[in-house]
Design a binder for these strands. Structure first.
Lengths: 192, 192
DNA sequence: CTTGCCTATGCAACGAGTTGCATAGAGGAT
DNA sequence: ATCCTCTATGCAACTCGTTGCATAGGCAAG
């Protein structure tokens, strides 16, 4: 399990509350590690009782109090140890791939519409990534000499951009294939 | 949850036992949907009691008996209904991206070695995919006029190939970035 | 002849992830 | 006035996924 480690990295990059972490897991970190606020609160509590993070209650005007978390030395050691462990193969779960193969046993028309919608989502995500890259790394507002943290954030973002571009190209391929199959079926060649 | 649906698709492509399914989830299907044999047996049992699949006990010589599963009409309906549901955004969990961002707070040397190993795994996977494509779809042994099922299997495989190529290129980028940071640190510019 | 691997299925316990709900004050919209 | 949204935290119940272990016959290598 690595949610703890994702939280440690995020808190090292910038300390904050559970709520703030949950927001980040909706945005930047969420693009490669999803987590709900429930998970985050639960894990933060455990990490606190294990001494990995330190808490400080912060009063705010007009808003509820919050618990400000930062990484304690034992947490840093835990993260360091984890970083030295071998990288495990990712366990993937691609709904879409299952649906595509399932389309052999169903009318593909509906799937075509869904793939088009899916393509649009990825297209928007790519635009979003590129805007973020411009803003934080390559634009005129970006730091001239980025530090290690920023360089590493950038290379992860470049990975996201490459992934979205690859996905969009593949989805074109998928759509072409689905159209071909539908046309063949309409021609009275139900080849399954 | 979609393991049921992945199993239904796999059984429609070719009926078989839980063990055989588990093998497939180590190979072709496993490249986009991971599952252990425990999960498969448990879900198959539930699917059987829900009438989604039919079982037939098969005696074998020299091997234990097996339970041969095939999709029953209700299972087909369930799959069809699921195929018409909108595609949900995938919930990703990329250890590697977390580790890369974590490298800002640690010595990157170890991570470099791990990324190189990881790169090799993906390189081997790409080779394996390409061999499978040659064997089943583009080589001389492949069917001249593939049916819908084969065309869809092929387009999913092309997705896997595109993914591996993209990943390998990105890992080069990651390695270059890690080397740059290590060099900067060695020069006495610990920029974090 | 014993150790280990392959086929084949399964239980039990645990840990991780999801979903629904609850609280509670501040601010804006209708 | 009332409803909705945002900040901020949390419980409880449930499902899903993982890990370790168990059985059991056949086969091959040492």
């Amino acid at each position: 399990m690595a949610l703890e480690h994702a939280i440690l990295v995020s808190l090292l990059e910038k300390p904050g509350s559970g709520y703030e972490l949950a927001r980040r897991f909706d945005r930047s970190i969420g693009y490669f590690w999803t987590a709900t606020h429930q998970q985050i609160y639960r894990v933060l509590k455990r990490m606190e009782s294990d001494g990995w993070v330190e808490v400080r209650e912060v009063s705010q005007q007009g808003k509820p109090d919050k618990k400000h978390y930062s990484v304690a030395p034992p947490g840093r050691s835990v993260l360091s140890a984890w970083l030295h462990e071998p990288i495990e193969p990712e366990s993937v779960r691609h709904d879409l791939a299952v649906k595509i193969r399932g389309a052999a046993f169903d009318d593909p028309s509906d799937l075509i519409r869904q793939v088009e919608r899916y393509q649009q989502i990825h297209s928007e995500r790519l635009t979003h990534y590129l805007a973020g890259e411009q803003r934080d790394f390559t634009g005129p507002e970006a730091p001239a000499e980025p530090d290690a943290m920023q360089e590493l954030q950038h290379v992860v973002l470049r990975g996201g951009i490459a992934y979205e571009r690859m996905t969009l190209a593949w989805l074109d391929d998928v759509l072409a294939t689905l159209h071909r199959i539908r046309a063949a079926r309409a021609d009275g060649r139900p080849d399954c």
